[in-house]
Amino acid sequence: MPKMILSKTAIIFFTAYFFIQAQNKTDFSIPAIDNKSIRLSELYSKGPVLVNFWALWCEPCKAEMKVLKDLYGKYRNQGFTILGINQDSPKSVSKVRSYISSQKINFLVALDPNYQYLQKLNGQSIPYSLLFNKNGDIVYKSIGYLPGDEMRLEEEIQKLLSAGQ
């Protein structure tokens, strides 16, 4: 039985991988922390977008938010955007605005209290980041956060910006 399940899983993976090479566009609208609606395609049509899933209870996420804030400050004038999607459950949502304000985070933050958008992008754990180019293709992904990950991410952002993507 495990063999059968694993072989089914392998077939699913292979098929998905084949299709993903061909086509990768993603789009959705998500409520922002100030109740306004954000459409992903409107963001990536203007330049590279990093979608980052995070939560207040997740220490690596908060460490990553710090470096993302710096990257945003560095490249926002060149068209780079970040959309932070908060994964706190309803119990902590009230604290999210307070945290954002204290950290002076000025990129877009949206709420996903029942993991609907994390599932849409097939995330299983956080922090989880996806970098979209101007065409809506996912060009870089990162699961988890290790100090220094931002160097690799910055290289990818620079590549996209220099290619006009």
Binding site: T9, I12, F13, T15, A16, F19, I20, Q23, N24, K25, T26, L121, N122, G123, Q124
Partner: peptide
């Protein structure tokens, strides 16, 4: 039309 699969797996 466009078909976009996405898969996650946890073993």
């Amino acid at each position: 039309q466009t078909i976009i699969p996405s898969v996650s797996n946890l073993l």
